[in-house]
Amino acid sequence: MGKVACANVLSDLYAMGVTEVDNMLLLLGISKELSNDQRKVVIPMILEGFRDLAKEAGVTINGGQTVVNPWMIIGGVATSVCTRSEIIMPNQAVAGDKIVLTKPLGTQVAVNLHQWMSLGTPSWNIAKDLISAEDVVKGYDDATTSMTTLNLAAARLMHKHGAHAATDVTGFGILGHSRNLAEFQTAEVDFSIHTLPIFARFTEVCKQLIEKGGRNFKLLQGLSSETSGGLLVCLSAEAADKFVEEMRSEGGTAWIVGDVVPGNKTSRIADNPEIIEVSY
């Protein structure tokens, strides 16, 4: 949980090409439902995770705030003082650009399925006939690996390959965040998304959950919430190919998922997008 929070906070700066972060503040809400003994175990582990990933990013934590809260919450603030050349403004996409995504989709599905299974909820009574426990655990582990991976490598490659615009994909899903990015463009363009990389097995499970009267995550509509998701980056066609190749050569993930086309500053997902099943 600490690592996920740290990665998520830093992604806001990475999405603007800022790779050197000067300071972080850690914000912690300790659940009042935890006993003192539970706090002694849980809190140090969460803080350790946050610190470990901050160290990996080369960032120091110099303060923050802790409060007692109904829920267990961790977040933070990341700041950097930059020169103009260190920032990539997110408004220079042009028709003909390709759109790249650097992490798979489906973190909300992964976490919910795992929670349903662990608690034996009514939702799991529907889902258990659609996916095995082993596949739920594998998907959850893959999602955890993704959520705790920094977007730092992608931010560095944005500079190297001349990215025109970018955003991170989090709570509004890939469609929500691509719409926000499209609205911010200087040129009159649309974002057309034709491919969705999704954690393995989740596409079919989501379809069948709807048919069985279960929850509709709206994953294939691009509206499923993501946590600590990838960067959505607009680059020239040639640069996009090189960006993807280099991300993969460095052990990361990246896919060309769409096109920038003439339009009215909005975003859409194809009626039948290509699905790429991703497993770590």
Rank of each mutant, 00 (worst) to 15 (best):
A15G: 01
M16L: 09
V18D: 04
T19P: 03
E20P: 01
E20R: 00
V21H: 00
N23G: 13
M24T: 02
L25M: 14
L27N: 00
L27A: 08
G29M: 07
G29P: 02
S31R: 05
K32W: 08
N36K: 13
N36R: 11
N36E: 13
D37K: 06
I43C: 11
M45Y: 10
M45V: 13
E48A: 14
G49N: 06
R51A: 13
L53V: 11
L53C: 13
K55I: 08
E56A: 07
E56L: 11
A57H: 07
G58N: 15
T60P: 03
I61G: 00
G63P: 05
Q65F: 10
V68P: 11
P70V: 03
P70F: 08
I74S: 00
G76H: 05
G76R: 02
G76C: 06
S80M: 00
C82K: 05
T83V: 05
R84Q: 10
M89T: 13
P90R: 07
Q92C: 12
Q92R: 03
V94E: 12
A95C: 12
G96R: 01
I99G: 03
I99C: 07
V100S: 03
V100C: 02
V100D: 03
K103A: 14
K103T: 11
L105C: 14
Q108N: 14
Q108T: 15
A110M: 04
N112R: 06
L113R: 06
H114V: 08
H114S: 14
Q115A: 14
W116H: 15
M117E: 04
L119A: 13
L119F: 11
G120V: 09
T121P: 05
T121M: 05
P122G: 06
I126N: 09
A127H: 04
D129A: 14
D129I: 11
D135E: 09
V136H: 03
K138E: 14
G139L: 09
Y140W: 07
D141K: 09
T144E: 09
T144W: 00
T145F: 14
T148Y: 09
